[in-house]
């Protein structure tokens, strides 16, 4: 079977700082990583491939340096990598991103065989919308299975798939058909380490690079800023709270006295709570 995994290169947000004066993101020198959620999708794809046979193609849309993310994915064991890169993609919102990615997936289908499953992560850690997966599914007319916690079974001959999907208040067990798009939940299996063999292959591999035309995109107005209905108009810092916390003085007091003062303070701020807590609490 053929599986496509969409991965995004994102700034390592643990290391992002905001410029205190200009309120801009200081990206300089911030290392990039594969969106952590996408690694769960990649691992699941590799497991399905190992079990059922076939190939895993990883796909990213991004600047030329996004090649690093693809090479990393190859070291984990992906078989092929496609980089979709074109200045026309700059400024894409999720509608334009899912358009470009869906066109590229169709082209991957033409070139390397129609995918049976397309995987995405649950969401990214930068844009953080969780909209690209559903967007790709709709555009490619694939069945959409989001927040999948587990792939219970795949029957290749019958072209059916059964998954456990996280939903509000429980887990849905869904039976559906291939081809489909799966957005994988976090906390499933962690990404494998990848073999030495894979690492060597990754270093040598040729990465497929497509611009818009090569990906089969004819209507460039559906891409990038022009193809994006949403526009970020304003970026600003949240208003800081005017005052700092009122500190309970702890000098020369027993823990018990401090706790007593805190409870008094809580009930002064929230008088209604005193009554309500005493009626609901199990004290």
């Amino acid at each position: 079977m053929h599986i496509v995994v969409c991965i995004k290169q994102v700034p390592d947000s643990a290391q992002i700082r905001v410029h205190p004066v200009t309120n801009t993101i200081m990206r300089q020198g911030v290392p990039t990583i594969i969106n952590p959620y996408d690694l769960f999708a990649l691992e699941e794809a590799l497991k399905v491939r190992d079990y059922h046979g076939g190939e895993v193609t990883v796909l990213t849309m991004g600047p030329p340096m996004a090649e690093d993310a693809l090479r990393k994915a190859l070291t984990y064991g992906a078989d092929r990598a496609v980089l979709l890169t074109d200045r026309h993609f700059a400024g894409s919102d999720t509608l334009a991103t899912s358009f470009a990615l869906s066109q590229a997936i169709a082209q991957i289908g033409n070139s390397f065989g129609t995918p049976d499953i397309v995987f995405t992560g649950k969401q990214t850690i930068d844009g953080d919308t969780a909209q690209v997966g559903p967007g790709i599914a709709k555009r490619l007319n694939l069945v959409q299975l989001t927040y999948v916690a587990k792939i219970a079974s795949i029957e290749l001959s019958a072209r059916t798939i059964t998954v456990e999907r996280r939903s509000e208040g429980g887990t849905q067990v869904l039976k559906s058909e291939l081809p489909c798009l799966i957005t994988m939940l976090e906390g499933t299996a962690s990404i494998r380490r990848g073999s030495l063999e894979d690492a060597l292959r990754a270093a040598r591999s040729e990465i497929v690079k497509w611009n818009a035309a090569e990906a089969g995109i004819e209507d460039i107005t559906k891409c990038g800023l022009r193809g994006s209905p949403t526009v970020v108009k304003r970026v600003f810092a949240p208003t800081p709270r005017a005052e700092k916390a009122a500190q309970i003085d702890t000098t020369e007091k027993t823990v018990r006295d401090v706790a007593d003062e805190l409870v008094t303070s809580i009930f002064t701020h929230q008088p209604a709570l005193e009554h309500e807590l005493s009626s609901t609490g199990s004290a």
Partner: peptide, 17 residues
């Protein structure tokens, strides 16, 4: 909506749609 984990906010419009 918050961006970059809440360190900044951004205001987004849907134009022409």
């Amino acid at each position: 909506r918050p961006t970059f984990g809440g360190s900044l906010l951004c205001t987004i419009y849907t134009l022409n749609c």
